[in-house]
């Protein structure tokens, strides 16, 4: 059955489904009991290294560790 309902409020505010579902997942993770919470937050950490390309050579890579969301 196709829904004829209005778009969800988060869509109306300009969010994408990915943003919405990531925010939902973040809230759920934050509500966990302690050993599970640290584990879940750790799993969401992102580590990557960036090196800029200047004058035909790669500069020294910078390692970044980001935690998505706030």
């Amino acid at each position: 059955m196709a829904s004829n309902a209005a778009v969800p409020f988060w869509r109306a505010a300009g969010m994408t489904y990915i943003t919405y579902s990531n925010i939902c997942a973040k809230h759920v993770r934050n509500c966990l009991k302690e050993p599970f919470k640290a584990e879940a937050l750790n799993r969401e950490n992102v580590h990557f290294s960036i090196s800029k390309w200047v004058d035909g050579k790669a500069e020294k890579p910078i390692l970044r560790s980001d935690t998505p969301g706030v």
Partner: peptide, 18 residues
Amino acid sequence: AIEAVPLENIDPSQVQKG
């Protein structure tokens, strides 16, 4: 699902705070 947790792993005090 993006995140799924067993119900017993949820901390009720965190939920109230949130």
